[in-house]
Simulated assay, not measured.
Amino acid sequence: MPECQNCEAFVTDQYVRVFAPTGMESVRVCPNCPGKVRDGADVRDARSPRH
């Protein structure tokens, strides 16, 4: 099962197909990651709070 590389939460295969770069089998950040966003090939802290 795919999981988030940041928080290790379960993500669906469909979520991975949409949000992971081509060739990756998991995502770097998911909606469960508080205050984190994707930034190109990296993950960074959000500049504004996420609710």
Rank of each mutant, 00 (worst) to 15 (best):
M1I: 15
M1G: 15
M1L: 02
P2S: 13
P2T: 03
P2L: 05
E3M: 06
E3H: 10
C4E: 03
C4I: 09
C4R: 03
Q5G: 08
N6E: 15
N6R: 09
N6T: 07
C7A: 04
C7T: 00
E8T: 07
E8S: 13
E8A: 11
E8D: 09
A9G: 04
A9I: 05
F10P: 02
F10L: 09
V11I: 11
V11Y: 03
V11F: 02
T12Q: 04
T12V: 07
D13M: 10
D13L: 10
D13G: 07
Q14G: 00
Q14M: 08
Y15C: 04
Y15S: 03
Y15H: 11
V16H: 00
V16Q: 03
V16G: 03
R17A: 14
R17L: 03
R17P: 03
R17T: 06
V18N: 02
F19V: 11
F19T: 11
F19C: 13
A20S: 08
A20N: 02
A20C: 02
A20K: 01
P21A: 14
P21V: 00
P21Q: 13
P21H: 10
T22C: 01
G23C: 09
G23Q: 08
G23W: 02
G23V: 04
E25C: 09
E25T: 11
S26A: 15
S26F: 03
V27C: 15
V27H: 07
V27S: 10
R28Y: 13
R28C: 08
R28D: 14
R28N: 14
V29K: 07
V29S: 13
V29M: 11
V29T: 11
V29N: 07
C30V: 06
P31E: 12
P31S: 03
P31G: 08
N32Q: 11
N32G: 03
N32I: 04
N32A: 13
N32M: 08
P34R: 05
P34G: 01
P34T: 02
P34S: 02
P34L: 06
G35F: 04
G35Q: 00
K36G: 00
K36A: 05
K36Q: 14
K36W: 00
K36Y: 10
V37P: 12
V37M: 07
V37I: 15
R38A: 12
R38S: 03
D39R: 01
D39C: 12
D39S: 02
D39L: 04
D39I: 05
G40L: 07
G40C: 01
G40I: 01
G40A: 09
A41N: 15
A41Y: 00
A41S: 12
A41M: 10
A41K: 11
D42A: 01
D42G: 01
D42C: 02
V43Y: 03
V43C: 10
R44S: 15
D45F: 04
D45R: 06
A46N: 06
A46M: 05
A46H: 03
R47K: 12
S48G: 12
S48T: 14
P49N: 00
P49H: 00
R50F: 06
R50H: 14
R50L: 14
